[in-house]
């Protein structure tokens, strides 16, 4: 009797998530095999692998794949390295620590569209932006970030958003570090670097694994920052897979090709997840 009640309590969540996963995914698979353009309705014949061929041979395809991976890896490295360093820094007592924490965490709560627009205009604008002003004051030629270094600009925006998350996780984890162990090491003559290298870093192994996992989920799907800042350009220079598919589906109305692209995104996410779980999964227990 009890068992059926507990199942009943679980049913809504499980059924909804199952539907959320299976219905759209099977539709994507179906669409990817037919000729389906929203501009030409009624011509939905089976075309086999053609959509996939079309998507792979798109000039943007390999650029988009490599941009997606460069974005992922750069942001992961920046946020984890700086995150560990900064959280170790603010873990020590100093005046106004709570205010510093609040300031450091804030960028995480800024919505992605606002993030991109602030950086694009007020920071990176080559004429009126803060960066241009700094360059000029120092006697350098201002850089046109979004046209000359579009992907790097997006990397900076996304890192600015996710660094606070890494700091937040690491600071929380450091609070549970054993202070007696540190004091004992100090007694034995260990210096600050030794303590950081041999006590703090190993203590952070698990939180680092968690941060890498979570950020990967979100970073593979970066969209809004590109949408409002560079629009994927110039050319395909800052187009990632998510943006390429969006471009195919909602700008060119080609549902078939966009679905094939969607399946590539799913496959890429699975490949990355597979390596990730092998590399960091041992640190993660439920």
């Amino acid at each position: 009797m009890k068992r059926s009640i507990t199942r009943l309590l679980m049913a809504p969540s499980v059924i909804l998530l199952l539907a959320w996963m299976i219905v759209p995914l099977s539709m994507t698979i179906y669409f990817s095999t037919i000729n389906y353009n929203l501009l030409y309705p009624g011509r939905n014949n089976f075309v086999g692998w053609m959509n996939f061929e079309f998507f792979i041979t798109d000039p943007g395809f390999w650029i988009a794949i490599s941009n997606t991976l460069i974005l992922l890896i750069s942001v992961l490295v920046i946020t984890v390295v700086l995150g560990v360093a900064l959280s170790a820094l603010i873990d020590k007592p100093f005046y106004g620590r709570n205010v510093v924490r609040v300031l450091l965490i804030s960028p995480f709560f800024i919505m992605p569209t606002v993030n991109a627009l602030i950086w694009k205009n007020m920071m990176m604008n080559p004429v009126y932006g803060i960066f241009a002003w700094i360059s000029q004051t120092l006697g350098f030629e201002p850089i046109d970030w979004l046209s000359d270094y579009p992907l790097m600009s997006v990397i900076i925006m996304v890192s600015w958003q996710w660094l606070p998350f890494a700091i937040l996780v690491f600071v929380t984890a450091l609070q549970s570090q054993d202070t007696e162990q540190k004091e004992a090491a100090q007694m034995d003559g260990a210096n600050g670097w030794h303590i950081f290298r041999y006590l703090t870093i190993p203590h952070l192994a698990r939180p680092i694994a968690v941060v890498v996992m979570i950020e990967t989920i979100f970073l593979l799907a970066v969209f809004a920052e590109i949408y409002v800042s560079t629009g994927g350009g110039p050319g395909y220079d800052s187009t990632n897979l998510a943006y390429l598919i969006y471009n195919q589906a909602l700008l060119q109305y080609d549902v078939g090709v966009a679905s094939a692209g969607g399946l590539f995104a799913v496959i890429l996410a699975n490949i990355v997840a597979f390596f990730l779980i092998r590399a960091v999964g041992k640190n993660l227990t439920v």
Binding site: M27, A242, N270
Partner: peptide
Amino acid sequence: WMLSTKMLPAVGVLVPIYIL
């Protein structure tokens, strides 16, 4: 399994969700 549904990239189901 619930965690794994978060791994599914939204853009992979953009078209069907849009059409539905």
